[in-house]
Design a binder for these strands. Structure first.
Length: 548
RNA sequence: UGGGCUAUAGCCAAGCGGUAAGGCAACGGACUUUGACUCCGUCAUGCGAAGGUUCGAAUCCUUCUAGCCCAGCCA
């Protein structure tokens, strides 16, 4: 596929052409404090994709500098998700493996008079920082001697001070219009057990100090991140320069991915999970990689979607219809096409001999003949879709109604002769006659029908559960300061139906994807599907220009 | 009201002084044993606005407007 140009690709290309760089190394640096979502997938596709395009390499690096929030469980799931998305990292690293070197660099800063130990409390530091429009003021501890700072910092490391009692700060400029440069905290005391280093450390580096060092240590040439870090770039460069690292990685920022009718922040996703609006991090309605995988989205579709939405610095919102498009596109030739009735209505073919049945040949995917054919049973009683019959049809309704004839996919023409209602007035059974001459595959062409409907033979039908999803977040009209995203949670985002499928699907494997004729693409739910009683998640419906 | 960033169609997005790519959506039409797919066609005299420079401006300059991000010992 033709690679569309984007500003980062242009920069890298130039760097290579001008000789600024002679190779490319990128990295995907997640913090193992939660599950990956499709926003991370964008970062993954960009980092791995770009490096690959230029013959470079990409590392997976866990940015594990805050033991309070991180856990091995997350590093495992992140690795799984990156692999599932189809990428192989060159080197696997942990920021925590660099703690010794980071400590040494901090000592260097102290010796250069560029860092100091501060005794101010968190609240005081905030007050001293000033505001967006007013400069901050210097801490009374700012002018401690290097010797004193060295001593204090070493004692911080040894565990002599309580959490929050002391921090190491960079000495930059308390009056900078960029708040990140107002003597940012470099190290904090935290007597916490780290998932990787255990209790070796009780001081941990902050992101702004750690990240540039990690990149420089690994020789990352292009450090790609999202736009909210733009303000941090001067600090990033300050750290690499003043810590006298051998090479200077270049930080480049791109806009986050947003998609309509969903939420992308870890905080909001966590809230949806914690408050049980959804059923866990892998709920098929969530944009988490695990949720999308369970819903049935393919890695290929996610990758293509991300590529097509592009890379820019803008903060736009991509229409979820584009995501839908790429799954349909990917599954079109791969997924078997079969018949499933989600809302069953019995249909009796009155002129089909009782007790008889036949096996019909049916192609598995007419757009991909190599997938072959299957046999499906047919007899006097079948199930059709409730919405495929109307007692009083509107104009341009091509399906069944009294006197109308339709084609049963892979079978015969049937004509509606009668129907039965229950006491409540609901249609419960349709009576039709069929024309044996119209069998699928025959050359019958004496008359045509406008509609073709799907069905499942009643005596062989296998019960199945279907789960249909709607957007988790409803459209919000005008902005309302009073409301939060929780006010727009769609409480009807999941609809569960019980219907029937063809018998050959009875023991279908988890994560198998298929198209139910005229409905859409479905995935076999890995958690709740069982042999003999499959559960299907609708990934996406088919497009439809039909409107009642 | 300090700093950083962004404005190209309903949405995403190319374009980098030579006369507005592409994708999604939408809308016509053809085909159709999926109201699907496929195919054909339509969809910015216009690039946030107003000035200016130039033979020529989405691209350069000026001013304005709107939106996003920043005051964690989170990343």
């Amino acid at each position: 596929m033709e690679q569309s140009s984007n500003f980062i690709r242009t920069i890298i290309k130039q760097d290579l052409e001008t000789g600024k760089r002679d190779h490319v190394i990128t990295r995907f640096p997640p913090e193992p404090n939660g599950y990956l979502h499709i926003g991370h997938a964008k970062s993954i596709v960009i980092n791995f994709g770009l490096a690959d395009d230029f013959g470079g390499k990409t590392n997976l690096r866990f940015d594990d500098t805050n033991p309070l929030k991180e856990d091995q469980e997350y590093v495992d799931s992140i690795k799984e998700d990156v692999s599932w998305l189809g990428y192989e990292w060159d080197e696997l690293h942990y920021a925590s493996n660099y703690f010794d070197e980071m400590y040494d660099r901090a000592v260097l800063l102290i010796n250069k008079g560029l860092a100091y130990v501060d005794d101010l409390s968190a609240d005081e530091i905030r007050e001293y920082r000033g505001t967006l429009t007013e400069p901050g003021k210097e801490s009374p501890h700012r002018s401690r001697s290097a010797e004193e700072n060295l001593d204090l910092f070493e004692r911080m490391k040894k565990g002599e001070f309580a959490d929050g009692s002391k921090v190491l700060r960079a000495k930059i400029d308390m009056a900078s219009p960029n708040l990140n440069l107002r003597d940012p905290v470099l190290y904090r005391v935290s007597h916490a057990t780290h998932h990787n280093t255990g209790d070796t450390w009780c001081i941990y580096p902050m992101y702004d100090f750690a990240h540039p060092l990690e990149d420089a240590i690994e020789g990352v040439t292009h450090s790609l991140c999202t736009t909210e870090f733009e303000d941090h770039r001067p600090l990033y460069e300050w750290v690499v320069r003043e810590c006298e690292m051998d090479m200077q990685p270049q930080q480049i920022e791109f806009g986050r991915l947003n998609i309509t009718n969903t939420v992308m922040s870890k905080r909001k996703l966590k809230q949806l999970v914690d408050e049980q609006h959804v059923d866990g991090w892998d709920d098929p309605r969530l944009p988490t990689i695990s949720g999308m995988r369970r819903r049935g989205f393919t890695a290929e579709a996610i990758r293509e979607f991300v590529k097509e939405t592009g890379v820019s610095k803008g903060s736009g919102v991509v229409d979820s219809a584009m995501l839908d498009h790429f799954v349909r596109e990917d599954l079109k030739l791969k997924a078997p096409r079969t018949m499933g009735v989600l809302r069953p209505l019995k249909l009796v073919i009155t002129n089909y001999p009782e007790g008889e049945m036949e096996w019909l040949d049916a192609e598995i995917n007419p757009e991909n003949p190599e997938m072959g054919t299957r046999q499906i049973p047919f007899s006097r009683e079948i199930y059709i879709e409730q919405e495929d019959f109307m007692e009083e049809p509107p104009k341009k309704y091509f399906r069944l109604f009294p006197g109308n004839e339709v084609r049963l996919k892979h079978a015969y023409f049937v004509k509606c002769e009668d129907f039965i209602k229950d006491e409540d007035g609901n249609v419960v059974e349709i009576h039709c006659t069929y024309d044996p001459r119209t069998k699928s595959g025959s050359d019958f062409n004496e008359r045509k029908v406008k509609g073709t409907i799907h069905w499942v033979d009643a005596t062989h039908a296998v019960p199945a559960e279907f789960r249909l999803y709607e957007p988790l977040i409803l459209d919000s009209e005008e902005e309302d300061e009073e409301k939060t995203f929780l006010d727009y949670v769609n409480e009807k985002s999941l609809e569960t139906l019980n219907g029937f499928i063809e018998p050959n699907l009875q023991n279908i494997d988890a994560q198998e994807k298929l198209q139910f004729f005229r409905h859409g693409y479905f995935n076999v739910d890995p958690k709740h599907s069982k042999p003999g009683k499959p559960v299907f998640n609708r990934i996406v419906s088919l497009k439809s220009s039909f409107r009642l």
